[in-house]
Computed example of a mutant assay.
Amino acid sequence: MSSGFDIIGDIHGESDKLEALLLAMGYREQTGVFQHPDRKAIFVGDIIDRGPGVRRVVEIVSRMVGDDHAYLVLGNHELNLINWFRPLGLSKTFAHPHSKANRLQLSATLDVFSEDEAKSLANWLSYQPLFLEFPKFRVAHALWDQHFISRFIDTYSSCCLSPEVLRQSDRNPWLLQGLDRLTRGLNLRLPEGYFLTGNDGVSRKRIRAKFWGEAASNYGNVLLQAQPLPPELAARELTAIQKQQLCRYGAQERPLFVGHYWQSLPTNLFSANIACVDFSAAGTGPLVAYRLYHHHTALNPEHYFYV
């Protein structure tokens, strides 16, 4: 019987970091597949793009998933690749527009695979889970939206993406919004005239928003980014529409694991029941896992693992 799970953060093509982490946690490559004698890995998404070893990462992850030694939850970068090859309806317009900026974002993936290989990868990804729910914990790339998840399961009897879901998302606003929220989180538009410059040097008119804790009343309460807001903006009240857009993950909910948010060391929990495992592996940070054992009933920052 499995003793538990290792929830592994955003890899972004860093194959050396992935292999080092798996080996340090006791996984060994047997007949071409990394496996652990009594544990299973869960990848929280964003395995592709940015790093130099995308092909090797895809090889490792897909083989582990295919041999039932791991799960992969889709992230926004996987959804981008799927939509890069997916025409909208019968038109020649793609769901992820073929702009220079979008091509650049996917370049570390598209440059190492032939077009047929990339299409095959996108097709495989299009059948993977959007979220996972176990008796004692949950996993999503960026956010747990219970309203959307309940409706998705009621409609499709599955936690997985599929070509049918993709086709229906073109004309169903609730599907589009739900896919976006699960893989990209909550993003609120800033008032006219304001923008925030990230660590990547890009200025954005939207901010990532928290989805836990007390109900937010102003921009400062909800900000989920390292860059501070100007004091006058931090104190500005959210509009009624913005408050309606927010969803809260209550303190009474089972533990949730997410990636996506580019945290920095030291490893800390978002809240008592939310653990982020993305610690900027695509940059200078380590690839991080959370070692979860079946007998654990509460999250503990000491259970983070990295090399």
Results as ranks from 00 to 15, higher is better:
Pro173Tyr: 12
Ser120His: 04
Ala140Phe: 06
Ser157Trp: 09
Phe137Lys: 06
Val165Glu: 05
Ser157Cys: 11
Trp144Thr: 08
Ser126Trp: 00
Tyr127Arg: 10
Lys136Trp: 07
Asp170Ser: 14
Phe137Ile: 05
Ile153His: 13
Phe137Asn: 01
Phe134Tyr: 15
Lys119Glu: 02
Thr155Cys: 13
Val139Trp: 11
Glu133Met: 10
Leu143Ser: 03
Leu166Ser: 04
Gln168Trp: 08
Asp170Gly: 12
Ser150Glu: 14
Phe152Ser: 01
Leu130Ser: 05
Phe134Pro: 03
Ser126Thr: 04
Leu143Met: 12
Phe152Met: 07
Ser126Phe: 01
Ala142Phe: 05
Ala118Phe: 01
Ile153Ala: 12
Phe137Ala: 03
Ala118Thr: 00
Arg171Tyr: 13
Lys119Cys: 05
Gln128Thr: 02
Leu130Gly: 05
Phe137Val: 03
Arg151Leu: 07
Cys160Glu: 07
Phe152Val: 08
Tyr156Ser: 05
Ser126Leu: 02
Trp144Arg: 02
Trp124Val: 00
Trp124Thr: 02
Asp170Leu: 09
Glu133Asp: 10
Pro135Val: 09
Asp154Lys: 14
Leu125Asn: 00
Val139Pro: 04
Ile149Cys: 07
Phe131Met: 09
Leu161Cys: 05
Glu164Cys: 09
Ala140Met: 12
Ser169Ile: 04
Arg138Glu: 13
Trp124Cys: 01
Pro129Phe: 08
Trp174Tyr: 12
Leu130Arg: 06
Ala140Asp: 09
